[in-house]
């Protein structure tokens, strides 16, 4: 989980600050709107919205700053108040955007009424608001809940983490679908090898890819002109073929489970690879095609077992 750019913690709210000004003068409302916006943009969305109730000069401020939405704003208690998700979506529809970040990590979406339609509505709403960072986990369960293909309407994303979903079927998507600005992708979903290949192909700016607990016997053929870091954790690995990854620097395999006796790691074109982590000789064959990897690279390639 990445840190959110704003948090509910208030380390600077010290005793002096908690006290009303001694002379009872409201100076803050005299500050230029630009400064009020800077202040409101540092608040979790819930408190940003509340500033709209303070006084007339504050009414429109929260609508003019990028919002940062986290679990505590939208869904403080996933079991008793699932309708809040619905209410919050209605309110945010009124915000002109952008909504910079949406981090929702502890919603059990299957409790939300008409959840598929509701998730799709959220995704379309976030797409319309120019969402940049999206973390959407369906915790803790169930794995086979379908993630709507509306995800692909969020083309402004730079960071995407999706967990505990069935990934949309990418074969049904239009040829233009993709994430032109995506730099960081974390997947912990049920998905087909073709869907993963599709994501790599349609994310031309992707630099960081992490795949966690993929349940299938993953076969990954890596072709990416942009990827620098690849991490596969607790995956059912079958084969990794680093076919063409000119910028790849690090490849890490963590606690991977092999469905067959031995999985295979093949490194073909990866001239910048300098760290290959946690290769287990008993569990994986390693093949390095030496006509592409240069002699000096082999000597500097650090293989951690």
């Amino acid at each position: 989980m990445p840190d959110t750019p704003v948090s509910a913690a208030a380390p600077l709210a010290t005793a002096l600050a908690a006290r009303a000004p001694a002379d009872g003068v409201d100076r803050i409302s005299d500050l230029p709107d630009e400064i009020l916006k800077d202040i409101v943009s540092r608040l979790p969305a819930k408190f940003a919205v509340r500033t709209g109730a303070l006084a007339s000069g504050w009414r429109g401020i929260w609508r003019s700053v990028p919002l940062v939405l986290t679990d505590s704003d939208v869904f403080p208690d996933p079991i008793s108040t699932p309708n809040l998700v619905v209410d919050a979506a209605s309110v945010l529809a009124a915000h002109p955007g952008p909504i910079r970040c949406f981090y929702l990590t502890s919603v059990t979406w299957s409790f939300v009424p008409s959840h598929e339609a509701e998730i799709a509505r959220w995704l379309r709403l976030l797409a319309a608001k120019g969402i940049q960072e999206l973390v959407l986990n369906n915790r803790p369960w169930p794995y086979e809940l379908p993630l709507p293909a509306a995800l692909f309407s969020c083309t402004t994303l730079t960071r995407l983490h999706v967990g505990i979903w069935k990934f949309p079927d990418t074969t049904a998507l239009p040829p233009t679908a993709g994430f032109p600005h995506l730099r960081e992708l974390v997947l912990s979903v049920l998905m087909q090898d073709e869907d993963l290949a599709f994501m790599l192909d349609r994310s031309p700016a992707l630099e960081f890819l992490t795949i966690i607990a993929s349940q299938s016997a993953l076969r990954l053929r890596l072709v990416s002109r942009s990827l620098r870091f690849l991490q596969l954790a607790t995956c059912g690995l079958s084969e990794i073929d680093v076919a063409d990854a000119p910028r790849l620097e690090r490849l890490f395999l963590l606690r991977n489970l092999c469905r067959k006796d031995v999985s295979r790691i093949r490194i073909r074109n990866a001239p910048n690879l300098h760290m290959l982590g946690y290769w287990q000789p008993d569990h994986a064959e390693l093949e390095i095609t030496d006509n592409i990897i240069q002699v000096q690279q082999i000597s500097s390639l650090c293989i951690l077992c």
Binding site: A13, A18, R42, F47
Partner: peptide, 14 residues
């Protein structure tokens, strides 16, 4: 200073 004022607002009712 903006963070300071934001921290004074967090967790409070209007």
């Amino acid at each position: 200073v903006a963070k300071k004022v934001a921290d004074m607002i967090k967790g409070k009712s209007p």
